[in-house]
Design a protein around this nucleic acid. Sequence first.
DNA 1: CTGAAAGCGCTAACAT
DNA 2: ATGTTAGCGCTTTCAG
Lengths: 344, 344
Amino acid sequence: MTHTRQPDIRRPLTLRDVSEACGVSEMTVSRVLRNREDVSPATREKVQAAARELGYVPNKIAGGLASQQVNLVAVIVPSLSNMVFPEVLAGISAALDETGLQPVFGVTGYSAEKEEEVLYEMLSWRPSGAIIAGLEHTDASRAMLENSGIPIVEIMDSDGVAIDSVVGISHRAAGRQMADAIVAAGYKRIGFLGSTMAADHRARKRLEGLTEGLAEHGLDLVDTELYSGGSALKKGREMTEAILSRNPDLDFLYYSNDMIGAGGLLYCLAKGYDIPNQLGMAGFNGVDFLDGLPMQLATIDACRHEIGVQAANLIAGKDTGGVIGGHRIELTPQLKHGDTIRRA
Amino acid sequence: MTHTRQPDIRRPLTLRDVSEACGVSEMTVSRVLRNREDVSPATREKVQAAARELGYVPNKIAGGLASQQVNLVAVIVPSLSNMVFPEVLAGISAALDETGLQPVFGVTGYSAEKEEEVLYEMLSWRPSGAIIAGLEHTDASRAMLENSGIPIVEIMDSDGVAIDSVVGISHRAAGRQMADAIVAAGYKRIGFLGSTMAADHRARKRLEGLTEGLAEHGLDLVDTELYSGGSALKKGREMTEAILSRNPDLDFLYYSNDMIGAGGLLYCLAKGYDIPNQLGMAGFNGVDFLDGLPMQLATIDACRHEIGVQAANLIAGKDTGGVIGGHRIELTPQLKHGDTIRRA
DNA sequence: CTGAAAGCGCTAACAT
DNA sequence: ATGTTAGCGCTTTCAG
């Protein structure tokens, strides 16, 4: 009963506790815990032992305030509910791994107002950098980013003006590239299947690129089928059935993402369509489960992992030759024809 | 040229700047910015205008240090590269949305050592709570969690002893439930397809539950096919081909996740297997893209979103009647037979 | 190599 | 309703 010396009230340990436990000044303890070189091995040992023994966890709040620097990187994405953003986050995580920087993720639900809130919240932690999806932000968000004084990397999209650095692909170009492939393969009656989500600017730009590209060859979209909600196989089936029953003479279906495209493909195969001769199909993203479908869906890779890695490297100052800010990295994905676009 | 009054050196704005700009004390400015009620409307207006005008973003580092509270919730998961954890995160995000609490995500890559590092890092920000996947941790991690003095919720798994609260399902029971269904349907020669990942304790427990359940009926797994890497449709196809070519007489295939199960299902359908009569199949997770497959794969829902919501609610103190800590919420998912287990 | 003093930007607690 | 004082736990800076 008497051998318990723990104070009843659980107060988080401080540097001072460690200092007292090992008889070394707080300052030196702090040096050891930050792995600074200028401490004698003997003292270092003593301090580390005491810290480990007590289970001391440093208080980064105090540390950040004192040092005016914080090893956090704010990462803001619209959603976690489809494959695409988690892959970007994985890329960021991986690239930041050995840098001492820590990613912190925020989700906006494709809402500009929510983005503004999340941004405000995250910037109030004074991170060392921020990575944010897209180039479209509210004026207030843009002002916050500009005034933050930290490196900002806008990702995914390169069609527009960046605040600071940008790493992405041109979705407009991707749309045009697809249009060219469709035209080259001789398809004429093209349907579009995508989301109603007005705030998905990248999907919108792809569609614009597609229609522009088709228009140059005198073609126009014959019909459009829209849905709301996340990408889903089942939606793809239903939408495909709907658009084909309205327009049985369509000869190409372009989907705004691979998931609904895959659903459509499974539907068409089940219905006995002759793919790609009677009907061509394509999606977007290059998600890797396409590899397991009975037939390879044509797609364009969105370079998700790579974008994450490169954005993180910019923040970490890797491969930038010491230059901070103002970088522009535009990746150029190849169109994969797969099995669903016929050869010319 | 002369109209620019901006100081050349970009120093983040402080409360003091706002205070000077509007002629109100720092303290009152602070009150306004924290939406406290005890400020006159007139002053409030003045302060808000000044803050907005300047583009002031509060410094939560200083705030957190002064108030000794931080509105962050640490969330630690093994991976972001398959559907399951992003859905949990989405649930947490949603439940925390109006609480003033902010989730902060960390990823461990299924490594206990990495988990320890991430945990240390996150706890050093003194969050208001922590949500962490699984019940298996290093001793050091466990000690950190116990000493943190904040509510801890371990999620996904209820098979074991929790540090504080737990929200999850019994994976062992899920395995047994599947065994019962397999036996009840009269299948006899069962193959298992899963991951080699030893650190995936939940997959391991499901397998243990399955084998125990089968053993009670005198059955044993006929063969096992393992892979490494994330869940993927293509892997499922390849593994299925491999196990069936070794054992053409298998009559049931149990997959450790829906993704490889779906791959297997597509393979078997393409090969003309008579599902579920000649060959039964089942996966695990209840991911929603199963709805879009040509045939519904049998599965057990892992309640991912719900687990996220409930864990977040525990941290936020919702529905707990004021009781903090020590909650145990075990969800009981139903087995969905789908079209791939024959009716008895 | 080690220590002492000052202060990071904010808020709790106490005046007024 | 508003202001003043002190101090959160650490690190910077400067002395020894």
